[in-house]
C-alpha cells in the first residue's frame, strides 16, 4: 500500500519551520517522521503524519503551500547490509528513487525507510513481487 506524505515549502528564515510544526500541533496532528531538504533560500519539509488530509488543511490554513504525494514505506533489516540489499533490489527493478529517508523505529525492530519513487505504482508492484515488505499505512501510523 502506498502512504500519503505531506510536504510543504518553507522559506529559509528563522521561525518558519517552528510555525509549520505549531500549525500541525494546534490541530492535534502527530508527526511520525520527517525530512527537511534544503537549498540556499528555501527548504521542502516532508512529513509522515497521523492524518495527512487534516495536516494539509492545517498547513494551508496557516498560509503554507502544501501537497500530498504517494510514497512507500519499506521494511529494512536492522543489521549491516540491510539497506544495501534493499537498494540492490530497487536497482535490479530499474526503479528511479527521487529521495528517501528513514522512519524512526524502536531499537532492535525492523527499520523502515520511506521511498519517494518517480512511479510509486510500478515500484509497489515490483517490490512486492521481489518479496520486500511494504508496510501498510495502518500498521505504520498506529504502530
Amino acid at each position: 500500500m502506498k502512504i500519503s506524505q505531506l510536504s510543504t515549502f518553507i522559506e529559509n528564515r528563522s521561525g518558519r519551520l517552528r510555525a509549520a510544526c505549531e500549525a500541525l500541533a494546534a490541530r492535534g496532528i502527530n508527526i511520525h517522521t520527517l525530512c527537511l531538504a534544503d537549498s540556499r533560500d528555501f527548504g521542502i519539509l516532508r512529513l509522515i503524519v497521523a492524518d495527512p488530509p487534516a495536516g494539509k488543511a492545517a498547513l494551508e490554513a496557516a498560509g503554507y503551500v502544501a501537497q500530498l504525494t504517494e510514497v512507500l514505506a519499506v521494511e529494512v533489516p536492522d543489521s549491516a547490509g540491510g539497506l544495501a540489499r534493499v537498494l540492490a533490489t530497487t536497482d535490479a527493478a530499474g526503479l528511479d528513487i527521487e529521495y528517501m529517508y528513514a522512519f524512526s523505529t524502536a531499537p532492535g525492530q525492523q527499520a523502515v525507510v520511506i521511498f519517494r519513487f518517480s512511479d510509486p505504482d510500478r515500484a509497489l508492484a515490483e517490490l512486492q513481487q521481489r518479496g520486500l515488505n511494504v508496510v501498510e499505512p495502518v500498521r505504520l501510523l498506529q504502530g
Binding site: 506524505q5 510536504s7 515549502f9 531538504a37 534544503d38 537549498s39 528555501f42 521542502i44 516532508r46 503551500v65 501537497q67 504525494t69 527521487e98 529521495y99 519517494r116
Partner: peptide, 15 residues
C-alpha cells in the same frame, strides 16, 4: 510566491 500549481516536493524541481 510559490502557489500550489508551482509547488513540488522535490528540490530539483523547485530549483
Amino acid at each position: 510566491e510559490v502557489s500550489p500549481e508551482f509547488f513540488s516536493d522535490r528540490i530539483g524541481a523547485m530549483e
